[in-house]
């Protein structure tokens, strides 16, 4: 992960990577003993308690399981935002914001793709960034 990226990603830290071509992937943990994938990264496997875990890049694309347009949240978040659960092929469900999307056009199970987005700002006005997902445009997937 580049230094530049580290600075930009003050929320997700090592839980996200961006390739040179701009592809964004979440980074979880894979258990070296039982093979379980976990997101966000962890240092002990919740299935077998092994500490033999390695970093695992997860698929850039997943499917939308459910979502909500959120109008009430603690200070700092840009409102309204779309909260969602996204299912990644590695049997991992991720809570994420959906960005660059018309809420009316969202559909269950639609393919979505990871990216980096500004989600709000802190008390000093500094932008808060993290991973988010956006619908895959047709012909893109």
């Amino acid at each position: 992960m580049s230094e530049e990226l580290q600075e930009a990603l003050n929320l997700a830290g090592d839980a996200v990577s961006r390739a040179a071509d701009g592809t964004v992937q979440l980074v979880g943990s894979e258990c070296g003993e039982c093979g379980k994938n976990v997101f966000p990264p962890t240092d002990v496997c919740p299935q077998c308690m092994s500490e033999n875990l390695s970093s695992r890049k997860l698929s850039a694309q997943g499917k939308l399981y459910s979502w909500s347009v959120v109008h009430a949240a603690p200070k700092g978040w840009d409102l309204p935002f779309i909260a969602a659960y996204v299912d990644l092929p590695e049997e991992v469900r991720v809570f994420a914001h959906i960005v660059d999307a018309d809420p009316e056009a969202l559909e269950m199970e639609m393919p979505v793709e990871a990216r980096i987005a500004v989600l709000g700002s802190d008390e000093s006005g500094t932008a808060i960034e993290s991973y988010a997902f956006t619908p895959v445009t047709k012909g893109d997937s």
Partner: peptide, 15 residues
């Protein structure tokens, strides 16, 4: 990452 209780129940509702 911004989860609030109403959003969690809202996602249950939509599903």
């Amino acid at each position: 990452h911004g989860l609030v209780m109403p959003a969690l129940y809202a996602m249950r509702a939509r599903r």
